[in-house]
Design a protein around this nucleic acid. Sequence first.
RNA 1: GGUCCCAUCGUCUAACGGUUAGGACAGAUGGUUUUCAAUCAUCUAAUCGGGGUUCGAUUCCCCGUGGGACCGCCA
Length: 464
Amino acid sequence: MDLVATRFAPSPTGPLHIGGIRTALFNWLFSKNNKGKFYLRIEDTDKDRSKDIYKSQIIQSLKWIGIQHDDKEYIQSEKIVKHKEIANELLKKGFAYKCYCTENEIAEQKAKAKKMGTPFIYNRKCRDSKNLKITENINPVIRFKSKISGNAIVKDLVQGEINISNSTIEDFIILRKDGTPTYQLSAVVDDHLMNISHIIRGDDHKINTFKQKQIYEAMKWKIPEFAHIPLIHSSDGKKLSKRDSTSNLSEYIKIGILPEALRNYLLRLGWSHKDKEIFSLEESIKYFNLSGVGKSPSKLDKVRILSINEHYIKNMKEKDLYKNFKEYCQIHKKKIDGNLENKIMNSMYFLKNKAKCLEDIYKNAEYIIIKELNINPGDHALIDDNSKKIIKDFNEKIKESKKFDKGFLEKCINDLIEKHKTNLKGVGQPLRIMLTGSKFGPGIYDIILSLGKEEVEKRLNKLS
RNA sequence: GGUCCCAUCGUCUAACGGUUAGGACAGAUGGUUUUCAAUCAUCUAAUCGGGGUUCGAUUCCCCGUGGGACCGCCA
């Protein structure tokens, strides 16, 4: 078998959305599974809408989730000369023809067809040279001579056999009147030039396959395998749009979704391997195949992304988690003070316990990070005179202590429970409020130890 | 409207003619817990409808119904 080569070919006309990232992931995984190549091709032939900023954003996004492409990215616009060459060759060989119909003319036909409720395809007026009326001031487009009769079949690796009548495929444009190639032509020429063996893309491209296949056949080029994967829908069942914030990668990065968690989620969206839910990177490469890809579209589910992220947070080494967290804070929250780093790192084991994302960890750790606590007024009201006595007693006790560890604190608090004839809640709650500003939070011993003796005293001294 | 595709718990999905239709997320209940969580245990919940084929259909075929994609001198 020839070398497997796949590609991901986005156009740099906007940020990559989550569906695009999944397509890239499937391509990448498939090539890795087959020990093949994976290329990135930037389809920037729409000069008006393509922006460099999007190009680098796309590369950034892929890098973030851990997909790296082989070789340098392939820039489609650099190959335009070659594309034109092929268009002219098709023209010369009689597979294509010049069309002088004006855009207005076409628009009129289209409007009429719509009014009559009949399907529109270009009427092939210029296909027959007898009808050719060459007007001096009109630059022609070049159209491909599509098959008129018979049926075409594509054997799709995901969809199975797709059978379509050739009469529904129009004579599509391969070269615009300004002489630039269109997508249908460029994609085929590039895929051929790049020796792409498997084209894995969203099933919105399914019909294009029938156009593109005819170009391959005319050029007598080897036709690659096709796999059209179902699209991802938004939670309300509609097509994922760029305006939908849940489709945007930056939304997930902003709340602190880990790249490996999103990768795992995307992998399982539309693909499965028995009952397995969690896949390491190595496992996803090992198990990924096209036969595991389903045929029906799936909905994006943020709750599930969060839950997978939680799994990754819980199972990550604390050192690595802290590294991620530190970086996250620096970019999206506030930079962690150098003298707090150790405190937070050593507290990671409990700060992560209630977190589904890095933003949650930040919220949990905020009482350490923030210098001036804002005590929730409602919570503050819970500190009655008796509680104040307890806090004072506690503060006295720790002042004289030499050892500041859990054993000491347990004894300390148990003594106070006995002395004030209360329970753990009676001591724990007021302390928690004074130390964190809220009655909700981590275990009281964790809080005290994470702040350290000095900081605890400082905070308790503020009691009035 | 035309062409093509799809259809299992609310969601992601497993079962590729024979299972009490399985798992995960979400949800519910209980245990544990100073709080919120976490955790443990238990539970609720699905084969779109109608016809065939077959000893037997979630699975194969047909017809409905519902959803989606495409129908650009965009990609």
